[in-house]
Simulated scan of single mutants.
Amino acid sequence: EIHIAVRGGEVCMNIVAMLRALEGRRIRAENHRLKKRLDVSPGRLGDIISQDYRMRKVCDTILQVADSDAMVLITGESGTGKTLIARLVHEASPRHSAPFVEVNCAALPDTLLESELFGHVKGAFTSAVTGRMGQFQAAEGGTIFLDEISEMPLELQAKLLRVLQEKTFRRVGGVKDISSNATIVVSSNRDLPKEVAEGRFRKDLYYRLAIFPIVIPPLRSEGRCDDILLLADHFIRNSVISPHSNVTGLSAVARQKLLRHDWPGNVRELRNVIGRALMIEKTDRIQPSSILI
């Protein structure tokens, strides 16, 4: 119980200082909780392993949005780890024990994507012999991750905008509004401002989504050379492809071979290259002949 002293008609300034101190204590406790749960250490947040300052900014942004329901837009080339970032945003949030639902907008034809997102009622179309719940409803109370949102058709973008503005949606063929209480995280490997300028993406939707933008630099970019070897060592130590391998590291020449490659497939390509090398290599150090790039 807090007693507020009143002097001369004004609230005593001591209570303001006390409330600020309590809020500061709450923030420090929450940051400690997050760091403990997400395995935060220098150069690491969860499964993000990097010494690059831009990746450190990514980690900082994840922790900044942890206590909010703000929408997050993740951009980066294929293979940079956009899904990993989306999952960490969810894990860092108060919704971490609720569902995390991923929808790849590029993997479904336009005719099915709306039903996948919002569901449909019986008889909405020829094959709709029963009603079906959509992924927005499945993500209720949690997080829905819309991967490659730039592939979403303009007509469906307008319906997504309604969800963001009104927090409701309708199933395909339905007339009843359904409330939505899911945090929305989206990603794209395209330049969305360019997509907006060329009329392929709605400007109003872009500005609603880009409240907290996260840009993941490609592995070949300047400053991420050290990350190549850090990640390679991590994949060797934590391989699920070849868990019984006797390999303990990389030879010096193999390390140079990795550094000379430009990694168009980014972290995904590097993980696959190391996984293949672990299956091929017969010594305790990966040799250049086992690195097939």
Rank of each mutant, 00 (worst) to 15 (best):
S221Y: 02
E140G: 13
L161Q: 08
A124E: 07
L84Y: 04
T126D: 07
R237C: 06
D284T: 14
V196S: 05
R171W: 01
L278Y: 03
G123H: 04
V247S: 11
A17I: 01
Y206Q: 06
C105H: 02
G9S: 03
F125I: 15
D204N: 11
A21Y: 00
V65Q: 00
F235Q: 09
R170S: 02
G134M: 13
L161F: 12
N14F: 02
R208P: 05
T248Y: 01
S41D: 03
V267L: 08
Q287F: 02
L230D: 09
K82Y: 06
H120G: 14
E281V: 05
L160N: 05
G123F: 10
G24R: 14
P193G: 03
R285N: 05
G174V: 13
Y207G: 11
I184P: 00
G265H: 06
A70S: 14
V6R: 04
M152W: 08
S242G: 03
F118D: 04
Q165D: 09
N272A: 14
A98W: 00
I2C: 09
M13L: 08
P264K: 06
G141R: 07
G123E: 12
D204I: 10
P109M: 06
Q51Y: 01
R162T: 12
T61C: 08
E77P: 15
M18N: 11
R200Y: 02
T143Y: 04
E102C: 08
M133G: 08
S289W: 10
L73T: 11
G119V: 15
R132C: 15
K122G: 15
N266C: 07
I216S: 06
R7P: 00
M71G: 12
Y53F: 05
V121Q: 07
V267C: 06
R56H: 11
T183N: 08
V196I: 08
A98K: 14
V196T: 01
R56P: 00
V11H: 00
V215L: 02
T83I: 00
A21I: 03
Q256V: 06
A92K: 04
C225W: 04
G249H: 05
I184M: 04
L19R: 12
Q256L: 08
I48G: 03
F125T: 15
N189R: 08
A197L: 09
D147G: 01
I178L: 15
V175Q: 03
D52R: 10
A139L: 01
L229K: 05
N266F: 09
R162P: 02
V58A: 02
V267I: 15
V253N: 03
Q287G: 00
G123R: 03
S180C: 14
M152Q: 10
L117S: 03
I214R: 11
K282R: 13
L205I: 05
V129K: 14
R190H: 10
T111E: 15
I236W: 02
D233G: 01
